[in-house]
Design a protein around this nucleic acid. Sequence first.
DNA 1: AGCTAAACGGACGCCGGCGTCCGTTAGCGT
DNA 2: ACGCTAACGGACGCCGGCGTCCGTTTAGCT
Lengths: 189, 189
Amino acid sequence: MIDDLPQTLRSDALDNRERILDAARALFATEGMDVPMREIARRAGVGPATLYRRFPTKQALATEAFTEQMHACNTIVEEGLADPDPWHGLCLVIEKLCELHARNRGFTTAFTSAFPHAVDLAAGREHALTSLAELARRAKDTGHLRPDFVLDDLILMLMANGGLHATSTNARVAASRRFAALAIRAFQA
Amino acid sequence: MIDDLPQTLRSDALDNRERILDAARALFATEGMDVPMREIARRAGVGPATLYRRFPTKQALATEAFTEQMHACNTIVEEGLADPDPWHGLCLVIEKLCELHARNRGFTTAFTSAFPHAVDLAAGREHALTSLAELARRAKDTGHLRPDFVLDDLILMLMANGGLHATSTNARVAASRRFAALAIRAFQA
DNA sequence: AGCTAAACGGACGCCGGCGTCCGTTAGCGT
DNA sequence: ACGCTAACGGACGCCGGCGTCCGTTTAGCT
């Protein structure tokens, strides 16, 4: 019950922990957030107990597993912000974000419907959003982005992008690409 | 096992059947397609056996339950087709379809990912789509609809519309409305 | 009113995911 | 090399949904 963590994991434990995270990332991406915990354990080659010992709940695991993707998200936004042409930058961001989400079935759910307690993710999310707001402001100034655009519209689009169900990842990515193009058209002044 | 149906149901059976369908419609709409069969039975005030006797599988039930909505779908498209201004008609269709789907969480899944064997639904679906294609052709002729528009774009949007998760129906409908507006902008020439 | 078969629904056994306990294994410090 | 303890994972009991069986009820016909 009380696991007064000794702060320093044994080498094999550390190794397992990493393998669990890898398995979780892979399965969350392809199968979505509703994969059984045991499936992840199996894939990682560990017993259920080991999995639960490291990550007591599924969302603890998800939070950890997705920080990587969260960083990717922020990187994408930073890149867009760095683009000399804000509108072009915004377009790139939209395209890349859509693709990222399409490749990670579970990430979208984690990102949009953000579980109540996934604090770490929420932080990254907010950071990405404020940067996005800044990018949008600049893009509006160039006159290429509709003046009545609001950030919620973009979130709406990302959510909607998550609705693109398809069995294969490739099909989903393809659909997502077309969707991104349509979204961009909708935002264009 | 073999239920050589006597074609004519007893009055109480008929009554239960109707109550089951009502319950199913209500629950599919609010909870989505993954409500337990027993939940539907409970709501209808019948035992599980009765439910399974009438509808051996969930998709048999869904097929029957959604024919009503499928008709609504077709009616919407017909109305759009009857509009003197095809582009205006198309816009109405998009708005109404999005709202219809937003109000019926389960219908979208049934309509887009259309279960393998839901033949009845598929028929109605195809009919709606051909009518839509005709409407789109006319709207293009007026010059208001983008020339490179394809019917798949609309389906893509409907699928995406299904991704708009929200706890309350009202919130979902609101989001759907904004989404429809964006979709229309994307399709506009 | 009485009979018969249609219809009902409570109860059962099965399955798969869940979270935990405890006997065994093996890292690591001496 | 050896012991101590962190770490492991098989196994357990629980729960909820599933689909079906069978004893009971009741509609409908004469």
